[in-house]
Structures are given as structure tokens and as C-alpha cells.
Nucleic acid binder design. Structure first.
Lengths: 204, 204
DNA sequence: AAAATAGTTGACCATTTGGTCGAATTGAGC
DNA sequence: GCTCAATTCGACCAAATGGTCAACTATTTT
């Protein structure tokens, strides 16, 4: 009963774009409302604060990303191929972003995390949670690759943390330098870190 | 002639601390002035804007860091030992930060870069410049290690970019998770990436 | 069609913020 | 101890910002 609204969704995608193409601190509630085409009163009808909206937006966005990653990291795909596909996907994605926004934007999660983690506890927790999910995709691929004898990674959780740090680092570098260049051969770096045995064919 | 002032320096260290322990966007000019014990009029006497001050502050800070890094990356030190020392230094440094600020703060440069690169061109350039210096330290160590036959790195510039991405990634992870844990064995990760030959003694 | 519910609106307010200015103050050099 | 440049100060301003609210509107349920 009562009327229905998509203001919630519009606000979420608005803040996502604004944070991504700019920053959290530089984004005002007025800006978010304007871009969403929603009045401030409605903003506060749906959300308590900017942090609250941001957390909801990243959460919703993650649900979409999750489906993509589930496909890429499907256990039916050979483990090293999963990593390769993941890198390819991100490379394509960042190129898409660049043509849409005119800039390479890297990983919104990591950039936001670095920005707000010291003074926005709700967001920090949300970001940690999603990064942990990301790490798990890597971990299982690494564990499977180890089990296949493709690599030597006795501690997959630890290797996954390393790879994640490396990959997020590359994405952030791409953002800072506004260049997708470093992402093109990113899988090679991962394979080096994992000590992929030379003769193992990555692409099945 | 005329009086002398240390307001400039006080403002620079104030903004540095505030950005570091918080963020750029979250830091106001009033806050900076208050922490520096300097009135706003004086702020605008010395600097044009927050971005201007931040650039000056990071520049000045870099001059100090540079001396430390020159010592660590001295060509008289065996190349892999330089990397080891670099990691050790940062580990100690982040621990110090943690006891002083109560939080692990990672690399202020990278965090700031991720935050402002899309909308503060002056800062972006300054950050790119300093990151490029950092990369060069790594590059020369890697080139020397390659020349000694300790590793196989035919493209030291490229390897250095990888290592830098990885290391900044680790530092940012440390910030986001408020934990120095991932930094403790960070040199090991670097050595893996460089494919350090097993039998080469790292510590001379 | 009435009632209840869900959402919208725009006016409004208190604070915060970035930024300016002229007058006052201080110290260095003569 | 005078002079003058360098610096400080605090008052001030306009705009931006976060946040509230009561009235209004649209939709669903009964």
C-alpha cells in the first residue's frame, strides 16, 4: 500500500558514481540528490546519512558484482584460467569505465577504504567485508591450483592476501596515473607471484 | 627584515597529520589552522588553498623521506638487502605510527592519491612525481640484483612497477584493516615476485 | 470511495566553511 | 630607538552544507 518509489535505487547509483569519479569527502548530499533527481527530504526519508547510503550502495553493488565473479570463478573452470579471466574482465571493465567517465577509476572499494577507514566505522566494516569476499574467490582458485599441482601454495589464504594486495595496488595505480596500461598484463604478475610452473598451459 | 615565522611549517605538519589520520576531503582549513595554532588570515598569507598547502607539505615531507631512502637504498648495500631493509623500515615505521596515532595509517601518499587524483590536478601531479621517485629506488635495486645474477629481471622498470603496486597495496590493506600483520613478512612476497633464487643469501 | 499508508516537496534553519580585509604587531637591520 | 617589511589578528561576509518539518500527493487496500 501507499505509493512506490525508485528513489532509493536512484540515490544509490548516484552516490556510487560520485564517489567513484570523485571521492567520498568531496561528495555532498545536495550533489547526490541533484544527480539522483531526488529532493533532500526524500533522501532523509530513506537514509540516515551519507555513510548510511554509501554502505547500502556498496552492498547493493556488490550483489551484482558477486554474480559476475561467481561466473568467472566457477569451480568448473580450471583454476589458473579463473585468474586469467578475472584479470581480463577487469581490464575490459576499466576500459569501459574510461570511455564512459573519461578517466580510469580503479577499484572504488579500495579507494573508498583508504579514504574513510579511519573515521567512518560503518563503511570500514562494509568494505572489509566485501574485500574479504574478493579474497575468498582468489583463495579457492589458488587452493585448487595447488591441488592440481599447477603451483606451490601451501597457504592459499596467505597467497590470496598477497595477490589481492597486488591487484588492488595495480588498480589504484591505474586510477592515480589514469592509465589502463598496468592492467593489460596483470595476470602475468599474478602468475609470477604464484610461481606458476612454466610448462603448465594456463588457457585450457 | 620584518619578523620571521614558523607558521608555514606548522601548517604543513598540521595538514599532513590530518590528512594522514583522516582524509583530505574531511579536513577543513579551520581544522588545519586550529591544529597548527595559526589564524586563518595567516593561512591565506602563506598559501593559496588547501591543495596548495597539501602539495607543499607532501613535498617538504618527501625531502625528509628521501634522505632515509637514500641510506636504505645505498648502492653500497647488496641489492636484495636494500629491499629487505626497506620492508623492515616500513614495518617499524607503521608500528611507530600505530603507537603514536592509535591506528595503522599506511602510505599517506597512496591513500591521498586514490582520493584526490580525479579532481585535484596539482596534487595528482605531485603524488605521481613522488611515487615515481619511490619506483626508481626499487628499480635500481632490482637492476643491480639482476646484474649480480641474484634474480632474473630483464625489465627492471616493469618489475619495479609491480613491486611498488604490491607494496602500496599491502600498506593500504594495513590501513584499511588497521593491522601491521601483513607488513611483517612483506619482503618475502617481494622476493617471490622477483623470483629470488633459493640459495642466494639475502642478508649478506 | 474512504482510509490508510508510502513517498514527495519546498520552504526553512543553524552551522560550517572558504575566503577577505584593514588595522595592529613584531622583529630585523640600520 | 627608528623604520619598514613581514606577519598576525579578528572581525566580517557570502555561500554551501547538513538537517528538519508540516503539508501535500499518489497508490494500494478494504
Amino acid at each position: 500500500m501507499g505509493r512506490v518509489s525508485d528513489a532509493r535505487e536512484k540515490l544509490m547509483s548516484a552516490i556510487l558514481e560520485l564517489i567513484w569519479s570523485g571521492s567520498y569527502g568531496n561528495t555532498t548530499i545536495d550533489q547526490i540528490c541533484e544527480r539522483a533527481g531526488v529532493k533532500k527530504g526524500s533522501f532523509y526519508y530513506f537514509f540516515e546519512s551519507k555513510a548510511d547510503l554509501a554502505a547500502a550502495a556498496f552492498d547493493a553493488n556488490w550483489q551484482i558484482r558477486r554474480a559476475e565473479l561467481d561466473a568467472i570463478f566457477s569451480p568448473t573452470v580450471p583454476p589458473l584460467e579463473r585468474l586469467q579471466k578475472y584479470c581480463d574482465f577487469n581490464y575490459r571493465f576499466q576500459n569501459e569505465i574510461k570511455s564512459r567517465f573519461g578517466m580510469v577509476l580503479g577499484c572504488p572499494l579500495f579507494a573508498l577504504g583508504a579514504e574513510v577507514c579511519t573515521h567512518e566505522d560503518l563503511l570500514r566494516k562494509k568494505i572489509q567485508e566485501i574485500l574479504e569476499y574478493k579474497r575468498k574467490y582468489l583463495e579457492s582458485a589458488i587452493r585448487d591450483a595447488h591441488a592440481c599441482g599447477l603451483i606451490n601454495a601451501p597457504d592459499p589464504a596467505c597467497s590470496a592476501r598477497m595477490i589481492l594486495a597486488y591487484y588492488e595496488g595495480i588498480l589504484t595505480q591505474a586510477r592515480i596515473h589514469n592509465s589502463v596500461e598496468g592492467l593489460r598484463e596483470s595476470a602475468a604478475g599474478i602468475f609470477i607471484m604464484l610461481g606458476v610452473k612454466q610448462n603448465s598451459a594456463v588457457i585450457a
